[in-house]
Design a protein around this nucleic acid. Structure first.
Length: 550
RNA sequence: GGCCCGGUGGUCAAGAGGCCUAAGACACCGCCCUUUCACGGCGGUAACACGAGUUCGAAUCUCGUCCGGGUCACCA
């Protein structure tokens, strides 16, 4: 045994397997040519946020459109920052947004697939096996520096205007001998395992990022930590081992990782692995006091995906919006394929934006309205009541008190060829539909400026006497047109426009009066339908109330 | 500060040397359609960060400047 081998045995005596063992277990995947294996590797240090969802979507759709596999892996190597329920929130959140997980953590407490375990804390032995192998080859070594020592070195480097970090001549334990290690271990000193980087600042490495294109950087020469003092691997090391063993073909992650690519590539090379393709996704940004910045979990409510749920944004709508950011050609495709699922879209990483997109709630609302307008009243009923049940129980009670009534209400301007685009999120519905429910309705008889209260009252009185609930739309409007000339209004809009001086207004103005009397609004869906749903008695009593208050 | 990445209307973006007098979408405005409200249709305002260079020709290539973002941990 040489010194390196003795060092490896001393440090990791309990490890009796070799990398070969794992290479045998985790065979290459049997997938068709071109199929991409992607993953999302969240760390349960917080709740599912927009950036993670976005990355998950991009990974998912990449796998889907190549007939590949998308899996989840939990990166719980930072026990200090882990939060209760983090895994549950992330996995169930993905599920709520319809991101199907093929493998890995398919639910909070269930792993499936042949490349597991899919939780890093359960893979300790695997990482340690590879680390041991590296030490044996003299490619990694223990470092006994304390945090204080490291700080001091940093200070000196800063004073001397040197590049900071543990590299080259600053790497104190780089050439530590077996005897020295033995002595320190006997003293019970804690240590980390560092990679003995063969790289040099002078050399450049080039890689082809699948979203950003060609990127050139200095080679890594930092002896970065691969095993922390508690024996748990750092992200870098776990990433290399896991993505190799799990046969990930494409690592699509946030672009904050770009700067560590040289470390990763070096690690893959030293470990004898073939590196995956990397694609770095630009973050979703937000405008903050005129400055563009990455959307932040701490400062921005919309960063937590839960925000969308509580606002009542339908998950499908959020995904649809995210797709418009993810792929610049998605909207064109959508126009050509209005009824297909986004999953059928041929996603191309090259069509991703290279710079971060600002989160645009106007756009989200528009996308959302379009998606919801395509839903039939049955679907809307279910989605709306589901939302209300969770976030607005008062509204839920009201909506479900008489389901048929609610369905009839939702059907107006909806189950028709050109549906109305009105609702972007369920939280708007309560106010929007308030006049359908006495418990929510607040009358407001404010008239438009061109109509006098006397005319309005006179019209309503006459209308009341001819009103018939069973009128169809044409008959309904004909009654208004009939009354119009009797009180000085034009029956036809064109008539009025041609000679505005001769009339007080036109039939359309009178329908506005009626709308206000019935709904307290000037903007509503089709009034005739509304009146049918409301029923004769309600309409009459509202008209009476309006007449009395005018 | 070092190292990366980026910069086309308010926003998302198309654009790979001549097809650019720069597409489309959202937002905004106007008009048309219409029984109201919508939907829809048509149109409008509005952009290549700046400066050099290469070229017959630059949004596109090169360099510099400026601006924005990321990263420099025993966090991921």
């Amino acid at each position: 045994m040489n010194d390196f081998e003795r060092m490896a045995e001393l440090l990791l005596p309990d490890i009796d397997k070799t990398p070969d063992y794992y290479e045998q277990i985790y065979k290459p995947r049997n997938l068709p040519e071109g199929a991409r294996v992607t993953r999302i590797a969240p760390s349960p240090t917080g709740y599912l946020h927009l950036g993670t969802l976005f990355a998950a979507l991009v990974n998912r759709i990449t796998a889907t459109s190549t007939g590949g596999v998308f899996y989840t892996r939990i990166e719980d190597t930072d026990k200090k920052r882990e939060i209760e329920g983090g895994v549950e929130d992330i996995i169930s959140g993905l599920d709520r947004f319809g991101i199907k997980i093929d493998e890995g953590f398919v639910s909070a407490d269930k792993q499936s697939g042949e490349y597991g375990p899919y939780k890093q804390s359960e893979r300790a032995e695997i990482y340690r096996t590879y680390a041991k192998s590296l030490i044996k080859q003299g490619l990694a070594y223990p470092c006994f520096c304390t945090a204080e020592e490291l700080d001091e070195v940093r200070k000196i480097q800063e004073e001397q205007k040197e590049r900071t970090g543990y590299h080259g001549k600053w790497a104190k334990h780089r050439d530590i001998t077996f005897d020295e290690v033995k002595a320190l271990i006997d003293e019970g000193k804690p240590y980390v395992v560092r990679l003995k980087s063969p790289g040099s600042e002078e050399n450049r490495i080039v890689f082809d990022d699948t979203v950003k294109g060609k990127i050139e950087m200095p080679e890594n020469d930092e002896d970065f930590v691969i095993l922390k003092s508690d024996g748990i691997p750092t992200y870098h090391f776990a990433h290399a081992v896991d993505d190799h063993l799990m046969h990930t073909t494409h690592v699509l992650r946030g672009d904050e990782w770009i700067s560590s690519v040289p470390k990763h590539i070096q690690l893959f090379k030293l470990l004898g692995f073939k590196p995956p393709k990397y694609g770095h996704i630009s973050p979703i940004m937000k405008l903050d006091n005129g400055a563009k910045r990455k959307i932040s979990k701490r400062k921005d409510p919309e960063a937590a995906v839960h925000f969308f749920a509580s606002e009542g944004y339908d998950s499908e709508c959020v995904i649809e919006y995210l797709m418009t950011i993810a792929a610049s050609d998605f909207e064109d495709w959508r126009r050509a394929n209005p009824d297909k699922s986004y999953k059928d879209f041929k996603f191309n990483l090259k069509k991703m934006s290279v710079s971060g997109a600002l989160f645009d709630s106007d756009k989200l609302n528009d996308v959302s309205k379009t998606v919801i307008s395509k839903l039939d009243s049955k679907a809307v009923f279910e989605k709306l009541t589901d939302w209300a049940k969770e976030f607005d129980t008062e509204f839920y009670e009201i909506l479900t008190e008489n389901p048929d009534y609610t369905r009839a209400m939702l059907s107006i301007d909806r189950d028709v060829p050109k549906p109305r685009k009105d609702i972007a999120k369920w939280s708007e519905a309560k106010d929007y539909f308030s006049f359908f429910f006495d418990k929510l309705y607040t009358p407001d008889f404010t008239l438009p400026e061109n109509i006098t209260p006397a005319d309005a009252a006179e019209f309503l009185k006459r209308y009341k006497s001819v009103y018939n609930v069973s009128d169809d739309r044409q008959q309904w409007f004909d009654r208004i047109k009939q009354i119009a000339p009797e009180i000085g209004f034009a029956a036809e809009t064109k008539q009025y426009k041609a000679d505005p001086e001769s009339f007080k207004g036109h039939a359309g103005d009178l329908s506005t009066v009626l709308r206000i009397a019935i709904t307290g609004r000037r903007n509503t869906p089709d009034l005739c339908s509304i009146m049918q749903v409301l029923g004769y008695d309600t309409c009459i009593s509202r008209i009476d109330a309006a007449i009395n208050s005018l």
